[in-house]
């Protein structure tokens, strides 16, 4: 199968990608995966036929920046909280999650850290920044209060806050969203995690702040794997080594960012591309598939995207496609070789 066969796309896609970050993952390819998810299915505990995640298969290596792209209702937040081990008790998880070869339940919680879309909601509003960060450092490193304060200040400096002592005296509501996100990242770094889950960390921020936060995350990736969840395909492709596209609880496409950017194989991925308004050139009509993704309760036996797809085959309506293809780029579509 030739993955690079041209797909009938209106816009010309990226021509060439050199080594760069792609080569970097190739280097690590021999090492065992840091995070490995196999056949992860998450259902409602009282209605097991309602699947929020459906047989998700995913591997992350150390130093990798993996972007998970999905819209609301795709199950990306469920995936994050399942990996973090804070999933709601109303959910039941089937399948396996391993971190460094050990089952999730046996793994120290400190191996994983998470940052969120609205950092100000995840910081205690009535405690000072300094208290919250110092507390984390004290708990993780067992330092005295004074040592912890110094370490906290260093952490804040590391995430690009120039006046850490001033910042530590502030409350979350006295700071901007970008600054609060830096504090959240400092707290995550304080845990020295192997895996950092970033759930839409920049969606609520201005573009310039977004860029700064993304730059900061990239500096961190050498020490850990980053699972970056976003609905913004632009950010995903720009920053990540590999991306996965989640649609209605299923990974429909997963592969190297450069390959996906050049030849998106799943029609939904292509729809995501064409929904991004261009910055230059004459405005053309944005192409977007009608409708929205099906609710977990309304999902049929066949392909979840079938009702919105222009290339639906007969098989699409009865059989759900599985991920297939070369390891560098896999797609779950019956019509992907057309």
């Amino acid at each position: 199968m030739d993955q690079t066969t041209a797909h009938a796309l209106e816009a010309p896609f990226v021509q060439t990608f050199e080594q760069g970050n792609v080569g970097r993952t190739a280097m690590e390819a021999g090492s065992p995966p840091l995070l490995s998810i196999t056949g992860l299915t998450v259902v409602l505990a009282d209605r097991p036929e309602t699947r929020l995640l459906d047989a998700v298969q995913l591997e992350l290596r150390k130093g990798e920046f993996f972007a998970l792209v999905g819209e609301s209702g795709s199950g990306k937040s469920v995936l994050c909280s399942t990996i973090m081990g804070v999933a709601s008790s109303e959910l039941r998880c089937l399948g396996d999650i391993h971190i460094e070869g050990r089952r999730l339940s046996d793994v120290d919680r400190r191996q994983r850290a998470m940052i969120y879309q609205q950092p100000s909601l995840y910081l205690n509003p009535v405690r000072r920044i300094g208290f919250q960060l110092r507390e984390t450092v004290q708990v993780i490193d067992g330092l005295s209060k004074k040592e912890a304060s110094e370490r906290a200040a260093d952490l804040l400096r590391d995430v690009g806050i120039d006046d850490p002592n001033e910042t530590m005296r502030k409350y979350p509501h006295e700071m901007s969203g970008g600054m609060n996100q830096r504090v959240m990242i400092a707290m995550a770094v304080a845990m020295k995690p192997q895996l950092l889950i970033a759930d839409e960390p920049t969606s609520a921020l201005d573009v310039t702040t977004q860029k700064q936060i993304l730059d900061l995350l990239e500096q961190l990736r050498s020490d850990m794997a980053i699972l970056f969840v976003t609905h913004d395909l632009g950010v995903a492709l720009q920053r990540s080594d590999r991306i996965g596209v989640l649609y209605a609880g299923q990974l429909v496409e997963i592969g190297r960012a450069d390959l996906v950017a050049r030849t998106p194989l799943h029609p939904y991925t292509r729809a995501l591309f064409s929904a991004v308004p261009p910055l230059s050139g004459r405005p053309r009509r944005l192409h977007s598939p009608a409708g929205s993704l099906p609710e977990p309760t309304q999902r049929q036996a066949g392909c979840n995207f079938a009702s919105r797809c222009s290339g639906t085959l007969d098989t699409c309506r009865h059989t759900r496609p599985a991920l297939q293809g070369i390891p560098q780029q896999m797609v779950a579509c019956h019509n992907s070789e057309a």
């Binding site: 573009v207 913004d232 632009g234 950010v235 591309f273 910055l279």
Partner: peptide, 15 residues
């Protein structure tokens, strides 16, 4: 600087 900060990654969407 605003324009530079827009994630682009050469989506192939620009002319």
């Amino acid at each position: 600087s605003l324009l530079e900060a827009v994630p682009n990654s050469g989506l192939g969407l620009e002319t």
